[in-house]
Design a protein around this nucleic acid. Structure first.
Length: 305
DNA sequence: GACCAGGTGTCGT
DNA sequence: ACGACACATGGT
């Protein structure tokens, strides 16, 4: 349990997130690899264990003692130079009060630059599950099948490992019926190690179609993988939360998810996925009751982060 | 115990 | 093409 870390270093961020916003970035449901203990975030970026904490002007961070520098990795992962802040300004917030409110409340929110592998694996676990449960599944997969990088800190398993994994081990990770999705997708991708580069060469529309050919990948998981794993800011995942907020704020009752996805991409434009992230954070913020078909329970007051 | 969860696959019309 | 339902598991 004894992990040796370097001294803290500072990373300046172009658009500084507040501590709650940093929590939303790291643990709001776009990524499932970070956990918070005593104001310090611990996670794994690719093959690199890292720790983060909020800091004036950016974040403080450190890595395992004796490992190669991770400055560039982290700067890219967090979009330190602020590419997203610039495209965010092109979103239609001037004419869209709902979006403007969310962008103001979550200033500094950003899409993490995850690897395609991590995003796909994480969102293969996501169907019909709460974010907390997804994080536990991904953590279990790492602990059970991923290479150990430091005591208690594991990378995610690769597709070849997942393809060969004992069914009982997968089920033991709490995957439920998703174990089949993961095993079958792993079998398909283990045979082509260059899958991410191949798919990455496609335009977003083609990327979404290609991803959706994988078992367990429908429109929503494909959009999340494109957005979070391939950096396609024009991808627009529509889940229960986004569906609710679009229906509520734009009067789109009765619209189907495919139609809502088209609406989102048309209305928000090239950075629709970033707009989605603001709306998602807003929808889940403040212990609002989840989008329920039946009741608006007045008792649902828990913070998920 | 019933109901729900950042959906998807598979059936019926 | 669209709607309904099952799906494993864990939490409330």
């Amino acid at each position: 349990m004894d992990v040796r870390w370097t001294d803290w270093r500072h990373l300046t961020l172009a658009d500084v997130p507040s501590p709650p916003c940093l929590a939303e970035i790291l643990d709001g449901g776009q990524c499932f690899r970070w956990r918070l203990v005593d104001d310090i975030w611990t996670g794994v970026v690719g093959q690199q264990p890292l720790q983060l904490r909020a800091s004036a002007g950016g974040v403080d961070w450190r890595q395992l003692a004796g490992t190669g520098g991770a400055t560039k990795t982290l700067a890219h992962y967090l979009d330190a130079e602020g590419a997203q802040a610039r495209v965010a300004d092109a979103l239609p917030w001037r004419s869209d009060p709902a979006l403007a409110k969310a962008m103001e409340r979550f200033r500094g929110l950003r899409i993490l630059r995850q690897e395609p592998h991590e995003a796909l694996l994480g969102f293969l676990c996501s169907s019909n599950k709460q974010i907390l449960q997804i994080r536990r599944m991904v953590e279990a997969l790492a602990m059970q099948l991923g290479p150990e990088l430091a005591p208690g800190l594991h990378a995610l398993p690769d597709w070849a490992t997942l393809a060969k994994a004992d069914d009982r081990v997968l089920k033991g990770c709490g995957l439920g019926y998703r174990a089949t999705f993961i095993r079958e997708t792993a079998r398909a991708l283990a045979r082509r190690p260059g899958w991410a580069e191949e798919l990455g060469a496609l335009r977003t529309e083609g990327l979404l179609e290609a991803l959706a050919e994988l078992p367990g990948v429908g429109p929503k998981v494909a959009a999340c993988t494109a957005l979070f794993g391939f950096g396609r800011l024009d991808a627009f995942p529509v889940d229960t939360w986004i569906e609710q907020i679009l229906v509520e704020r734009y009067g789109l009752k009765g619209w189907k998810r495919a139609a809502l996805e088209r609406f989102g991409r048309a209305h928000y434009g090239d950075a629709a996925g970033l707009a989605q992230q603001y709306l998602f954070a807003e929808a889940r913020d403040g212990g609002r009751s989840p989008p329920s078909r039946k009741r608006e329970g007045a008792s649902g007051k828990k913070r998920l982060w």
